[in-house]
Amino acid sequence: MNGWNLAAAVLLGAGGTAALWGVTTGPPARRVIAQNMTTSAVCPALLLLSQGYGRPAYVDLALLLALLGPVGTLVFARLLSDDLSDGPPSARVLTWTAAGAGAAVVLAVCVAVGPGRALVKLLVTGALLIGGNIIASRALADGFQGVRGG
């Protein structure tokens, strides 16, 4: 078991436990935030796993998750808008912490991979992960006033 896998296990265990606790308890607003946090915890873990197993093809999983995770959160933000309207969820600290952790992991894996096509793929994954995270939490905080009831 090398350091990458150990880091992935720690990230998966800590992030997964925190997200599980958040998603099963509390008001709906907190649950949606925790669901959004799942993506930002598991996606860097998948990147670390791909580096730990020495299989660059595993980056595809992280790429797909970075693409589809925010889509799932937007589905909940749209269809749960009635429940979310009484207390619009906002977690600025958590959002920026998750974005920072994702950026740190992507940077570490990038340094290990070195220049090449794999590096471009990693950078695209990181950009999608952080951008999607910020877009999803912005949508949760601001709500979907314009399309509500449609």
Binding site: T24, A45, L46, L49, A57, Y58
Partner: peptide, 24 residues
């Protein structure tokens, strides 16, 4: 609705489990 939230969380974790078991 809350079940759906937990289910989506479980789906992502299941994908991580498959990756760990070398079935990407």
């Amino acid at each position: 609705a809350r079940q759906a939230l937990v289910l989506s969380f479980m789906g992502v974790l299941l994908a991580a489990l498959f990756t760990v078991l070398q079935a990407p």
